[in-house]
């Protein structure tokens, strides 16, 4: 469905020094700098997949989505989405995709969302019957009753986002690009939006690509995760395979009587010690060995060995990747420094 090969986007930005003289200097002799927002990413996504893009602010997630949806011309590399080259923006392509951005809105501010829907109906040439059916379905899943007739400016952020989603999906696109769709929403509303996206993916067998810097969005919704860092992919894999990469296991213990913390710290990193229950972090390879030692040496009532939550695994991998990237950069700089 989506095929991306060595995709790059470099922005040229002008640098301005502070103050009047700085501005003047910048005007006379503009200094420009190239920002490598996306710096050679490759991946393939099959129809119906739900993929999450994770990464810190400025990692290049939005830029990647903008190239996938055809808003930006890539600086290099190639993109194919549903057999089209996105930036040509052919009508048939645009009818198959949608882009939702948590920080930009397409709804007409002074009118009820319903009016914006009618505009989209005309532009996408959606038949009346299909339009009514889709709207009914969305109203049901998103609980839009009563908010479609209120001016958009009078809606809460969460209500507005629900309407934005509905407006963006009225033409029943097959490929969804969602850029931080839950940003700024409370946890409750985040969950509702996630559920809707999952439901849409099921009903219409749509491909979903979602970016977020909330780990929970991605882990709840996506079966595959791509982590980007400074314009490059540092990790691409299914949630299941990520579990395998966890470096630690968590051992949860129940004691039959209280024990001092110091005694427990001999076995591993104590994450939690609360009365009779405790949780310690043990390197993966030694987990079962440590567990049996614990059983023999301490007054244990119950023990379980678990994988750490996916969030902390990804966090681990991301910080590891950051260190690696930095090392690589230092290597490069040292090579460049040599004559």
């Amino acid at each position: 469905m989506i095929h991306v090969q060595d995709l790059q986007k470099h922005y040229t930005v002008s640098e301005k020094e502070a103050g009047f003289l700085g501005s003047l200097r910048a005007f006379v002799r503009p200094k420009t700098k190239v920002v490598k927002a996306v710096d050679g990413v490759s991946f393939d996504i099959a129809a119906g997949e739900r993929v999450g893009f994770l990464g810190a602010n400025g990692a290049g997630k939005t830029t990647t989505l903008k190239m996938l949806s055809g808003l930006l011309h890539p600086t290099g590399g190639s993109v194919q989405v549903a057999g089209f080259t996105p930036f040509q923006r052919k009508t048939d392509f645009l009818k198959k995709i949608t882009l939702v951005m948590g920080q930009k809105q397409q709804l007409i501010w002074d009118l009820p969302a319903q009016d914006s829907f009618l505009v989209n109906q005309a532009i996408f040439e959606i038949g009346d019957l299909e339009f009514k059916a889709t709207l009914k379905e969305f109203t049901e899943i998103l609980e839009l009753d009563g908010i479609l007739k209120k001016q958009v400016r009078k809606l809460s952020l969460g209500e507005r986002m629900k309407c934005e989603l509905a407006a963006a999906l009225l033409h029943r696109p097959k490929v969804l690009f969602l850029d931080e769709p839950t940003i700024g929403l409370d946890v409750n509303m985040q969950v509702r939006i996630r559920e809707f996206i999952a439901e849409y993916n099921r009903r219409f067998e749509a491909t979903v690509i979602l970016t977020s810097h909330y780990m929970a969005d991605v882990t709840a919704l996506c079966e595959r995760i791509i982590v980007v860092e400074k314009g490059q992919i540092v990790l691409d894999g299914g949630i299941d395979s990520l579990m395998q990469r966890a470096q630690n296991k968590i051992i949860k213990l129940e004691f039959s009587h209280l024990i001092p913390r110091a005694q427990l710290e001999r076995y591993g990193t104590v994450q939690e010690l609360d009365g009779l229950s405790a949780q310690i972090l043990i390197p993966r390879a030694q987990a079962s060995q440590v567990a049996s030692r614990l059983l023999g040496e301490l007054p244990i009532a119950d023990v379980t060995i678990e994988d750490p939550p996916i969030e902390s695994i990804i966090g681990e991998i991301m910080s590891e990747a950051r260190v690696n990237q930095q090392n690589q950069r230092i290597d490069l700089e040292m090579m460049e420094a040599k004559p």
Partner: peptide, 9 residues
């Protein structure tokens, strides 16, 4: 917000 205009057929 020109984005949305450009993404319409």
């Amino acid at each position: 917000t020109m984005d949305f205009t450009l993404l319409k057929p």
